[in-house]
Design a protein around this nucleic acid. Structure first.
Length: 577
RNA sequence: GUUUCCGUAGCUCAGUUGGAUAGAGCGACCGCCUCCUAAGCGGUAGGCCAGCGGUUCAAAUCCGCUCGGGAACACCA
């Protein structure tokens, strides 16, 4: 049952307001000593012409506000505070979670609707660095969140597989390419010749001309250039796939920029039909003055296409193919203007889905005292970061295994190191609002205490451990019907229960704002509340059988809750660590 | 220069449509393993919510200005 709505209805009856209004006014008090829900009476003071505090005390005495599940109603100043019956809440919430398991919080708001999530989108032949990890992790989490709410999600990897840099690469490869090196470490070799090209071009400007010529030949479909491009693309993709697999990320398709290239004539045709394509300084543009935006270039003055035209073609293709409800672009904040322009062109062209396209931007990944440039080759590759995190995790597990005598096998340790180490990296991207810049430092990325994925996973693992021991002792009958949840009324127990109850709301808010950190934050709160309970209460070792079973049920529900959240973030848990 | 985002504890960040005494984590300091995993738990210290003015019964939150920082700004993506 929904306590808030029930309370809103009762207040509505008592005050003469409609239930929707009262529901909107109800808030959660800042301190738990002030109850579970509060109704501020300021809004009533004008119509009733009484002081808010007086109204509150009058309402507190109204018997119509009572219910079996309400422990008491109190007025404190202008607020009317509701205290729920803790046992009743525990019973409602835990029954719901234990019945639904991992499906607790599933929604149906997305039923029959398709959401497209474009994310990751690395550039072919360039290293997959810690900046790409942001869109990858964010997009993956958003995909999972929308899926949980019933949306059909199409995950698209809009590969950067097109553009003038391929002219440079072809040129460089013909001059300095090492077939052997390319085979063993493709991106490393491609980066090497790319960097070399830029160095050499400083002394020999003719290289640039050759590069442009090679790009032109590639665009025209000349077989030699085309074959090299395909080779670079395939080999890069193979390397990216390894990272994706490691991180548990998958895509429904890899239609990159090149895929939309031959659809651009249709875009130009449509914009011409609508009469919004004009010539300016030799280029074909759409003027966007009425939106307060600079013109959007569709065709450059040399007749070639540009990324805006490819994004327009992509949006149209996606609508024609999927009829999307939302078309989400998980792309860095610096491209905000570009997307405003593209969406404005769609709107100006009269396309009804223009308003359903959203740019989900995110902050920069920066370094302390470090420049960051692909051309100069000084970047932090995601793989390095993951390896560092994994090996740190491995060290901790090994030393714990000695201290605790866990008896974990080498394979077991390795599996846990992978999951926890990678989870730790994923979490650092999702713990704060996405528009925040992440100032990269190894120290913070590898901090495994407090607000971190290892903390969440650790909480899960130690809880599983209790449940494992319970079942070893033959306690397998903690069926919902036989569990007396009414016994769970301590501050610590209630703290966990109330947070678990927030999961469904956190998921929908995360989707509505495209902010996975709302899920991450709740997960951390649940884990913290549970650890407090764990520390202060005997769970399995208690002598009261009914209480022991109720607490075991709370453990079970907490595991489900943490699992739901970590799953939405794209983080895997382990049974033991 | 124009547009835009931001400024909350030493550091990293939360703070719902304005509401009660502004909260976490890290770091610092002090405690807690004869007991279910100490990657844990408790406690203390630490704030003029950048500054000034305005709207309001009520402002970290809304509006204006100032200061400070980031980003974007037509033929790269």
């Amino acid at each position: 049952m929904d306590y808030r709505t029930e309370i809103a209805v009762r207040i509505a009856v008592a005050t003469g307001l409609d239930a929707e209004t009262t529901n909107g006014l109800i808030e959660v008090p800042p301190q738990k000593e002030l109850g579970d829900y509060a109704f501020p009476c300021f809004a009533l003071s004008k119509t009733l012409r009484k002081a808010p505090a007086f109204i509150a005390s009058e309402l507190a005495a109204d018997p119509g506000l009572g219910a079996s599940w309400i422990e008491k109603v109190e007025s404190v100043g202008p607020y009317l505070n509701f205290f729920l019956d803790r046992g009743h809440v525990a019973s409602t919430v835990l029954t719901a979670i234990l019945e639904s398991g991992i499906h607790y919080g599933d929604g149906d708001e997305g039923k029959g609707k398709t959401v497209i999530v474009e994310f990751s989108s690395p550039n072919i032949a360039k290293p997959f660095h810690v900046g790409h990890a942001f869109t990858t992790v964010l997009g993956n989490s958003l995909s999972r969140i929308y899926s949980k709410l019933g949306y059909r999600v199409v995950r698209m990897n809009h590969l950067g597989d097109y553009g003038t840099q391929f002219g440079k690469l072809i040129t460089a490869y013909r001059l300095w390419g090492d077939e052997q090196a390319l085979r063993s470490a493709p991106i490393k070799e491609l980066l090497r010749i790319y960097v070399k090209f830029h160095e050499a071009e400083k002394d020999d400007p003719s290289l640039g001309i050759t590069a442009r010529e090679n790009f032109r030949r590639l665009e025209e479909g000349c077989p030699d250039e085309r074959a090299l491009w395909e080779k670079f693309r395939d080999m890069s993709l193979k390397e990216f796939s390894a990272v994706y697999e490691k991180m548990g990320v998958s895509f429904d398709n890899y239609n990159g920029e090149s895929f939309y290239g031959d659809r651009i004539p249709e875009v130009v045709k449509l914009l011409n039909e609508k009469g919004i394509l004009t010539e300016s300084e030799g280029a074909q543009v759409v003027m966007l003055d009425e939106y307060g935006l600079p013109p959007c270039i569709i065709i450059k003055s040399d007749g070639t296409t540009i990324y805006a035209s490819r994004d327009l073609a992509a949006a149209m293709y996606r609508y024609d193919t999927y009829g999307f409800y939302k078309n989400i672009y998980v792309v860095g904040l610096p491209q905000a203007l570009h997307f405003k322009q593209v969406f404005a062109v769609l709107e100006k062209a009269g396309l009804p889905y223009a308003g359903d396209c959203v740019h989900v931007g995110f902050g920069l990944v920066k370094f302390k005292n470090m420049k960051f440039s692909t051309r100069e080759g000084n970047i932090v590759v995601l793989d390095e970061l993951l390896d560092e995190s994994i090996s740190k995790t491995r060290e901790i597990i090994k030393s714990n295994a000695l201290i605790r005598d866990t008896g974990m096998s080498d394979e077991g340790i390795e599996e846990v190191a992978l999951k926890v180490g990678i989870g730790a990296v994923i979490y650092t991207y999702l713990r704060a609002g996405r528009e925040r810049d992440i100032v990269f430092s190894w120290e913070e990325m590898l901090d495994f205490e407090g607000d971190s994925a290892p903390y969440l996973i650790y909480t899960y693992a130690r809880t599983r451990s209790i449940l494992r021991k319970a079942s070893e002792r033959g306690i397998t009958d903690i069926e919902i019907s036989k569990t007396d949840f009414l016994l769970l009324t301590s501050d610590d127990e209630t703290g966990v229960v109330k947070l678990l109850a927030e999961i469904p709301d956190a998921v929908s808010r995360a989707a509505a704002t495209n902010e996975p950190f709302m899920v991450a934050r709740l997960a951390a709160q649940i884990a913290r509340a549970f650890n407090r309970f764990y520390n202060n209460s005997a769970i399995l070792s208690g002598t009261d059988i009914a209480l022991r079973n109720a607490r075991l049920a709370l453990c079970e529900a907490t595991c489900a809750g943490i699992l739901i959240c970590t799953d939405l973030l794209g983080i895997e848990v382990v049974e033991q660590m």
